[in-house]
Computed example of a mutant assay.
Amino acid sequence: MSGRPSPTRVVFLGGLGRSGTTLLERLLGELPGCAALGEVVHLWARGVLADESCGCGEPFHACPFWRKVGERAFGGWSAGQAERVLALRARVDRTRRIPALRRLLAEERAGAGAWRSPAATEELGEYATAYRRLYEAAAETAGGPVVVDSSKHASLAFCLAAAGLDVHVVHVVRDPRAVAHSWRRRVARPENGAPMMSWSPARTSLHWLAQNLGLELLAREGVPVTRVRYEDLLDSPARTLRRLAAVLGVRPGLGFLGDGAAELSTAHTVSGNPMRFTVGRIGLTRDDGWRTGAPPRQGSLVTALTWPLMLRYDYPWRLS
């Protein structure tokens, strides 16, 4: 497995969906030198194979940006290549494999190289290489050194870090009671009208714990991880973005921010929340409808399941 450092810097937004990652990605994509790519983990199935729409509105294969990326990275997109990456993902990129990925990451950083399964190491290397080539081609096409991937999954962040990519994880958290309320909603996907996945509060709570704990483990292994709370981002967007820009080493050009709003340009995002298609002015206000819209029993259940991390992230037990 190659440990060659990538000249492209990858900002990886981690956390559980419905936590504000798409919004943060769109805002980061407006910073000078940054290109928002969407949820790259879904590019292979939804973009290459299903030809779903890019954030610019064009089908994936008709989008000039992604066509150039595919040509630079792989000599063009192919179904066989996408299916191979998806097969590798099923083998190496899963939440249940985080303990093994953590051991590999620790060994790589210690220079031990004592990974028990050469075949697994080769598969991880091949999987991460596909992302490395894609990121580098996207940065070259966009004309900037930084790409933003909002794939969220802690396991993919482990894969990228273990393979030696220059990745900085932005750990996005939101009050789990708000996340659980959002996951209960029925939302249609704008690409095809099909309903987006919905989860029960209990299932959401377990996924919230798994993803956030996975990212906590990643930070313990020395990977750069910066935490951002959804609530802080919406309460103080300029301050939050300035802090992130300083940490990520990019210029804090915030001219797109106004009084409680942001002006978004077209983004070539391959998957994500429907707001990835939004162009123009958007309001930056917290969605706190869960405080009155969620049944009290639901909030109590989520609190009981997630309270240790709730306290760590400064979310109160009781609602004010």
Rank of each mutant, 00 (worst) to 15 (best):
A162L: 07
A162V: 03
A162Y: 05
A163I: 02
L165I: 03
D166P: 00
D166R: 09
D166C: 00
D166Q: 11
D166E: 10
V167Y: 05
H168W: 03
H168S: 11
V169E: 05
V169Q: 06
V169I: 10
V169C: 02
V169F: 07
V170A: 04
V170E: 00
V170N: 02
V170H: 04
H171G: 01
V172K: 00
V172D: 03
V173R: 06
V173Y: 07
R174M: 12
D175N: 10
D175A: 04
P176F: 08
R177T: 01
A178W: 00
V179H: 13
V179Q: 04
H181F: 15
H181D: 08
H181V: 11
W183K: 05
W183P: 01
R184H: 05
R185L: 13
R185Y: 07
R185K: 15
V187R: 13
A188L: 15
A188V: 14
A188E: 15
R189A: 14
R189Q: 04
P190I: 13
P190N: 09
E191S: 13
E191W: 14
E191N: 12
N192F: 05
A194D: 14
A194T: 12
A194P: 09
P195T: 08
M196P: 03
M197P: 14
M197E: 14
M197S: 13
M197G: 10
S198V: 06
W199S: 13
W199R: 11
W199E: 07
S200C: 07
P201E: 15
P201W: 12
A202S: 14
R203H: 15
T204E: 10
T204A: 15
T204R: 11
L206G: 01
L206P: 00
L206V: 05
L206I: 03
L206D: 07
L206S: 07
L206Q: 10
H207R: 13
H207A: 12
H207M: 09
W208C: 04
L209H: 03
A210T: 15
A210Y: 08
A210R: 11
Q211L: 05
Q211H: 12
Q211I: 02
Q211R: 10
Q211S: 09
N212K: 11
N212L: 14
L213E: 11
G214D: 02
G214K: 09
E216C: 06
L217C: 04
L218E: 02
L218Q: 02
L218T: 05
L218V: 12
A219K: 14
A219C: 04
E221H: 11
G222P: 00
G222T: 02
V223P: 01
V223N: 01
P224Y: 02
P224Q: 05
P224A: 02
T226K: 12
R227W: 02
V228C: 09
R229Y: 05
R229E: 00
R229V: 08
Y230T: 07
D232L: 06
D232N: 11
D232K: 12
L234D: 13
D235Q: 15
D235G: 13
D235F: 08
P237V: 08
P237G: 05
P237H: 08
R239E: 10
R239D: 04
R239C: 02
T240E: 14
T240K: 04
L241Q: 10
L241D: 09
L241N: 03
L241F: 07
L241P: 00
R242Y: 02
R242P: 06
R243M: 04
R243A: 09
R243C: 06
A245P: 01
A245T: 11
A245Q: 05
A246M: 00
A246F: 01
